[in-house]
């Protein structure tokens, strides 16, 4: 169970107010909540259900159907590795194992310090530069461990700058 703040609750209410009358409002609402909070907290489920006049089970069913929606807070840097065929042809299988080892994470896990989470993805549309990975909204191609280390370095720098 995630502890979310009352400010988060306000944000969710705001999103529900803005979107609930859209035709097919469910996905736009879930996206907006995840964009705002990084995930779709359990606390939002009854709120969404009542705004859309659906049961909690229905809302939960939708959230669990889609790989994109997260029910736990992800790491600050969300790393997705493409597992699909084009990237396989350029060695994504080996890359995947090495990245898992390097981060000491398996898929769907988040590092203890909240820095990284790792997930699989099936094609990023970057198949002309396989293997590809996505870090937050940035897509990187022709990935190698060396390049990945550089990316990790730049993420650390980014964190230091934030402090």
């Amino acid at each position: 169970m995630s502890a979310i703040t009352s400010a988060d609750i306000d944000k969710i209410n705001d999103i529900l107010q803005k979107n609930k009358t859209l035709p097919g409002a469910m996905l736009p609402i879930l996206h907006a909540i995840q964009d705002e909070l990084g995930f779709v907290p359990d606390e939002s489920v009854p709120m969404i259900a009542s705004a859309l006049n659906q049961s909690r089970a229905e809302v939960h069913g939708v959230i669990s159907f889609y790989h994109h929606f997260l029910t736990k807070k992800p790491g600050q840097h969300q790393i997705s590795i493409c597992r699909a065929e084009s990237c396989q042809s350029m060695g994504s299988g080996a890359l995947e194992s090495k990245i898992k080892q390097r981060l000491k994470l398996d898929y769907h896990q988040t590092s203890a310090d909240g820095q990284y989470s790792l997930s699989p993805v099936y094609c990023l549309g970057n198949c002309a530069c396989s293997p590809a990975i996505r870090i937050n909204d940035d897509i990187h191609g022709e990935m190698t461990m060396e390049k990945f280390e550089n990316l990790l370095d730049s993420m650390v720098t980014f964190n230091l700058e934030l402090k």
Binding site: L27, P28, H31, F65, H68, F69
Partner: peptide, 8 residues
């Protein structure tokens, strides 16, 4: 535009 959510 409506966004999907990672389901093939």
């Amino acid at each position: 535009v409506r966004l999907g959510a990672g389901a093939y």
